[in-house]
Amino acid sequence: MKTEIKGAPTFAYLEVELAPGERIIAESDAMSSMAADMEVTAKLNGGFFRGLLRKLLGGETLFINQFKNESDGNRKLTLVQPWPGDMRQIRLEGNSFYLQPGAFLACSEGVTLGLKWAGLVSFIAREGLFKLAVKGTGDVWYGGYGAILEREIDGEYIVDTSHLIAYEPSIQLKLQLAGGFFSSLFGGEGLVTRVVGKGKIMIQSRSIPGLTGWLNPKLWG
């Protein structure tokens, strides 16, 4: 399997070339173009109940798609997330990685997707009640709205709500006011997420609630 992220950072999309017999798993509606003889199968991920949980509580879709090249030559497809922004690839070697709702784009064979309770703190921080745990051996592609910043944490770090998109399992989330009472209320930051632990976190430079919050006062005159 050959893959390349193109159009980054503003309009990143993933170009995939599958050799005969190879497969890739992708988020629902992520395919933008593909060879006409590609075999597409909708799959419930991790069974019906967990799939349903993913949809209702995790902000993810009930089905994910498997694209399989059943022809005898190389075949291409392109995958993309719904919003403009950057994309990252992570290689898993038996370890796991947490993705926030909506960040998942695709994974290779050997990677399993599981839903994990993220806690009320995560929900209040508008990061979703559940997080997606990807684990196994293989590659995972995920994306964000805007550019993606990477920070190596040892101790504590503060991230504004709805900007965290992925983190390592060694990291825990806590919620707190951005500053004192006054700056939290008037500084435009409100609640922030305090990430605690040792490991890597990924931050998106923009957020959908940020955009809609800006649009809403301008709508309907």
């Binding site: 193109k6 159009g7 309009f11 990143a12 999309y13 509606d29 933008s32 173009s33 392109t78 993309v80 719904p82 919003w83 403009p84 909506g102 959908i208 609630p209 955009l211 809609t212 919050g213 649009l215 809403n216 709508l219 309907w220």
Partner: peptide
């Protein structure tokens, strides 16, 4: 010639937090 993104998909991700027309 294809465009990598689709404006309607982006629009759909916004709808749940946009305020409805009064």
């Amino acid at each position: 010639w294809c465009q990598s993104h689709k404006s309607s998909s982006f629009g759909q991700t916004l709808t749940s937090t946009l305020k409805p027309r009064s």
